[in-house]
Amino acid sequence: MTLPEGNPETNSRVAVAPAERTWTAQPDQGPVSPTFDELTRQRAKGIIARYPVARSALLPLLHLVQSVEGHVSQDGIRFCAETLELTTAEVSAVATFYTMYKRTPCGEHLVSVCTNTLCAALGGDDIYAALKARLGIGHEETVGEPGTTGSITLEHAECLAACDLAPVLQVNYEYYDNQSVASAEALVDALRRGEKPPPTRGAPLTDLRTVELELAGFTDDPALAAAAVAGPSAAPETLRGVQMAAERGWAAPAMPGEHPALPPLPEK
């Protein structure tokens, strides 16, 4: 029996060590920068309006911040805090809890390689190791000037819920199924060249910021949005069971022709 090569590193994030600070007096919190423009502020209001309680908007707002900045900066935290009347500590507490909120500027694309057990056993660890070597970066590091065409942030991800299609990776959360070292290398090479190879399932590839805007609940272009929705979904693997049933003539027992009567109203 061989021990699979891999476990490239632990899954823990780099231990975070905030720079040493001294507080002699309360510093001024400067105003939120104009990066968060009127459109963004309107969108923030739109998000808040979706919920019965404003604070529910915080996760989408942080996605919105990432669509503007490509990560969550201190400015972005202030934007959320100001919008929801929270303290920046409360927003920081949330922003640092979730894996998808990135603390450093990200590339045009975020490449997430599943290295959870099943994908890893089927080659995910090898893919991740190969991409690290190819791009010369590690977990949550970026090759290229963040945000510019062809720049890539790499990460190893936990289970991406596509185990029947293992090993998988995502680019900007679009699925690239049944990957191999060669296909993954070809994919990142293309991304580095500024190309956008179509995902196996999902919408035509855009970039991380566009996708973050979608996660926040907005799309800039209705036509693109429609195309995005129509992007491929069912992989052959997904449909195997239902197709096999169709081929074999297997089906669930037939339902009654009419909807059956509902049970009587229970007595109080």
Binding site: V229, S233, A234, G241, V242, W250, A252
Partner: peptide, 28 residues
Amino acid sequence: PADTGPGPEGPAPLTPVLTRRWTAERSW
């Protein structure tokens, strides 16, 4: 593939209910 058809009493080995529309054109 397995060769077991639906038994006399039980339902078929596969019973697509939730998945039954998945193969439809633009199923979503």
